[in-house]
């Protein structure tokens, strides 16, 4: 189900089941959004947890003038900036982010209505089993070598390699409808 159309003006109500759907749909992306400000995973997850908790406890009184999704992104951004301001973690990010606040506000709305392909890619990554996801993210986004990933997760390089193959093959399958290049290969490859 799509949640971006759940909006209202003060009488926005959702059941716990609906809340669960909203949570699961947006949690990972909101965490990565918070991470883009704080560069600290635990703090990012905490901010997102608290934002959702606030959404839940105030669900009867909250005045959401756009969509729940846009509200969540805005709330996570504000909470992240607050944390940076109050705790002064990582001075350079604070500076970086202050310079970049306008840009981030832009990004905010971009995130809230990202394109179909991006949604599919993010969802596909999210569907990977935990360890595979971790390996893939470390390689793809943290630029770590297989050896470094193996050491940090306490697994063998062989396992890292296997997880990467499985991850990429899975993603290729998931994205095949959207990427013509892949489709061609799959047709030939049969």
């Amino acid at each position: 189900m799509s949640t971006s159309d759940i909006s209202g003006n003060g009488d926005c109500l959702f059941s716990e089941q609906e809340f669960e759907v909203i949570f699961k749909e947006h949690y990972a992306n909101l965490c990565s959004y918070a991470y883009s400000f704080m560069q600290e995973q635990e703090a990012s997850e905490e901010v997102v947890q608290e934002t959702f908790f606030k959404l839940w406890t105030n669900r009867n009184t909250l005045n959401i003038d756009t969509s729940v999704k846009a509200y969540l992104y805005r709330a996570v951004r504000n909470a992240s900036l607050n944390v940076i301001k109050h705790i002064g973690i990582r001075e350079e990010y604070k500076r970086y982010n202050q310079e970049d606040i306008n840009l981030n506000e832009q990004q905010d709305s971009d995130m809230a209505d990202m394109g179909e392909l991006e949604v599919v890619v993010r969802r596909a990554i999210e569907m990977l089993p935990e360890q595979r996801k971790k390996v893939f993210i470390m390689s793809r986004y943290q630029g770590l070598k297989y050896r470094e990933i193996a050491d940090s997760l306490n697994i063998s390089v062989k396992t890292v390699e296997g997880q990467m193959s499985k991850a990429l093959i899975f993603l290729r399958k998931e994205l095949s409808e959207y990427l013509p290049l892949i489709l061609i290969y799959l047709l030939i490859g049969q």
């Binding site: 949570f23 699961k24 949690y27 990972a28 992306n29 965490c31 990565s32 959004y33 991470y35 883009s36 995973q41 990012s44 997850e45 990004q107 995130m111 991006e118 890619v121 993010r122 990554i125 999210e126 935990e130 996801k133 971790k134 993210i137 470390m138 986004y141």
Partner: peptide
Amino acid sequence: LNPQPIAVDT
């Protein structure tokens, strides 16, 4: 993808 995904256990 920007921002980049991080590994969380939803």
